[in-house]
Write a protein that binds this DNA or RNA. Structure first.
Length: 262
DNA sequence: ATGGCTTTATGCTAAAGA
């Protein structure tokens, strides 16, 4: 890795499970960490609290729909969205993808489909969505465009990213087809930023609300930063901030922070 | 455990999440 000694940029991602329910957490976290970029997933409503973000010094680009999904990308300076939908299916109306240009790179914010139950059309939608993502990213790679993909991929990449692989064996987040699709994406030459520094696994980004998953640390790693090769060469660190998962009325996901040299 | 919480919504029950 080549870490330049000059400036650096911090990009974070966080599935907040409703921005309305989690606004105070997001504002607190922004104040504590002051990232350059924050990618949010699961807004779960049409509203984006731009005024509150502005008071913290951020502007907000977002795509939203009623009740479900929704992603927002917060930056210090305004950005123009390049894509507000994942290409490849004109009929797909779900708000799961936002691509913007910022600081000479593409910031790609994703909320991939859950896919459960696996015997339903939700699973085929998930696999098709991931294939569309792979095809689009292949296009960026062909043009050698630098990018950071951040967000909730709803995929546990490997056994070491899960407290109990047997418990998740047949789940859409861990099924063979889902992991194959994730590897196909990685095989475009991408770097899983957290994987670089956690060879032993056991670091998680999601803990279920149920059954004491959080106090027992029964988590899974499904929120990721995937980097194009030139950005991977600038990787300084990637880490999970577990603190917000322990706050009162927390999201079931916790933020991931990425630091890259400028 | 047959999902044990949490959130949203033409709301007081259902659907979705992971």
């Amino acid at each position: 890795m080549i870490a330049r000694t000059g400036g650096f940029m911090i990009i974070a991602t966080w599935n907040v499970n409703s921005i309305k329910a989690r606004l105070d957490h997001v504002l607190r976290w922004l104040g504590e960490h002051k990232p350059d970029v924050l990618m949010l997933q699961e807004l779960k409503g049409l509203e984006c609290p731009a005024d509150a973000f502005r008071q913290q010094g951020y502007t907000c680009a977002f795509v939203a729909q009623k009740t479900y999904n929704g992603v927002a990308t917060l930056t210090r300076t305004p950005v123009s969205p390049l894509l507000t939908r994942l290409p490849g299916d004109e009929a797909d109306e779900q708000a799961r993808y936002l691509e913007v240009e910022h600081s000479g790179l593409r910031l790609i914010n994703v909320y991939a489909p859950n896919g459960n139950p696996v015997d339903s059309e939700k699973y085929t939608y998930k696999l098709q969505w991931l294939e569309r993502l792979r095809l689009h990213i292949a296009g960026l790679r062909a043009k050698a465009l630098p990018f950071v993909i951040g967000g909730d991929f709803n995929i546990i990449p490997e056994e070491r990213d899960c407290y109990d692989p047997k418990a998740w064996h047949d789940d859409a987040l861990f099924r063979l087809e889902s992991r194959q699709q994730f590897r196909a994406l990685m095989n475009l030459g991408l770097t899983d930023a957290l994987r670089v520094s956690n060879g032993n696994g056991g670091e998680y980004t999601f803990w279920d609300y149920q059954a004491g998953a959080w106090p027992q640390n029964k988590g899974i790693r499904i929120d990721h930063f995937l980097l194009s090769p030139d950005i991977a060469d600038r990787l300084r660190s990637c880490r999970i901030d577990k603190a917000p998962r322990g706050w009162d009325k927390a999201s079931d996901h916790t933020p991931v922070l990425l630091e890259i040299g400028l």
